[in-house]
Nucleic acid binder design. Structure first.
Lengths: 188, 188
DNA sequence: TCCTTTATTGACTGATTGTTCCAGAATTGG
DNA sequence: CCAATTCTGGAACAATCAGTCAATAAAGGA
């Protein structure tokens, strides 16, 4: 048998992520996708199914990479609180790019169960890692011990959302940095 | 001359707000609009121009009403900090409804200058009122005096965004309440 | 070289999009 | 009642949509 060309499906998916995060699902046409992904139209349907399946896969891919990046920051410093700060600071530094996760949640809410499941699964892994690090920071006294670790994690993620949406709304870099500082200040 | 039916244009606009906030601009068809607004298609175009003009007007209307509600909370209590808390608590209580402001920013970012201008104008009025109240709370020692009032206002709005997106993502009521509590805790 | 598999291409479908046109119903002031 | 005006409903518009089909090109295994 002949295993043949097999275009770089990962790169194509990354390109799809780039289009979807900027224009959303409804704002993206298949024409935009095939041009950005630089593949034939038929290849798109053969490889990914239909537009919705591709969108779901793009959200999954994006969430997975985002989760990896968050966890790398969280665990990249010896002291837990420094890891938490690094995660927030990375968000501030990269806030100029639209977040496909937030956009997806805003666009569809809970109306598509299969999409909500993608979000739920991605959140689970990140929440686990963040929760562990928050508890460590509480043990060393860097995060208030009287707070529930889960509540702190929720708050950190909500703050990340606030920073990213503020950036998409046109906030400047120092505004975003200030938001990050205040978020950290809230949990000490 | 004969001044005639003149359907309730305000109610129709409110209905449009209801559709847009749930489905976004691209996810809303004119068919959905005429059905929700309960007016003829031609009336829609005669009265509001085209779909984009209607959307812009809907965002403007929504932002205006939201700003009124926020300010009513802010000024509804004698102590400034209680007003601030009331604003946050109202957001928590009403977070089950999608926010057209956030959805609009996520969907379009800064790509449509006329829309961005609507947001900017709406933000200005609210920011002014909130900033005034924050300064009062700083004078009475209820909000940390070492923080810049503008930064506190930014943070409050970012927290509101975080709460609303969390709700759209499926967060429960106690999670949202906890987010509100931590946001207030951050500025004392 | 031939064969199988995969990718590309462009044309095509049927549905839906936003928008306009038009005829008629409804409504109110004179 | 009449006339002026506004709203409605449906038909029609061109454009675009997602998705399919068929033919061709490319590429590696035999």
């Amino acid at each position: 048998m002949a295993r043949i060309k097999e275009f770089d499906s990962d790169k194509a998916l990354d390109a799809a992520v780039g289009v979807f995060r900027e224009h959303g699902f409804e704002g993206t046409s298949t024409e935009m996708l095939v041009q950005a992904m630089k593949i034939g139209r038929q290849s798109l349907y053969d490889t990914f199914g239909d537009k919705w399946a591709l969108y779901r896969l793009a959200v999954q891919r994006y969430a997975s990479e985002e989760t990896d990046a968050h966890i790398a920051m969280l665990r990249g410093k010896p002291r837990a609180i420094d890891g938490i700060a690094a995660m927030i600071n990375r968000v501030v530094a990269t806030a100029n790019q639209a977040c496909l996760g937030i956009n997806s949640i805003c666009e569809f809410g809970q109306s598509r169960p299969d999409l909500a499941e993608v979000h739920r699964a991605a959140d689970h892994r990140l929440r686990h890692a963040a929760s562990e690090r928050v508890r460590q920071a509480q043990e060393t006294g860097d995060v208030d011990n009287s707070l529930a670790a889960d509540a702190v994690v929720d708050f950190l993620f909500a703050s990340i959302t606030g920073i990213r949406v503020a950036a998409r709304g046109g906030a400047g870099r120092n505004q975003l940095a200030s938001l990050g500082q205040l978020a950290l200040r809230a949990i000490v």
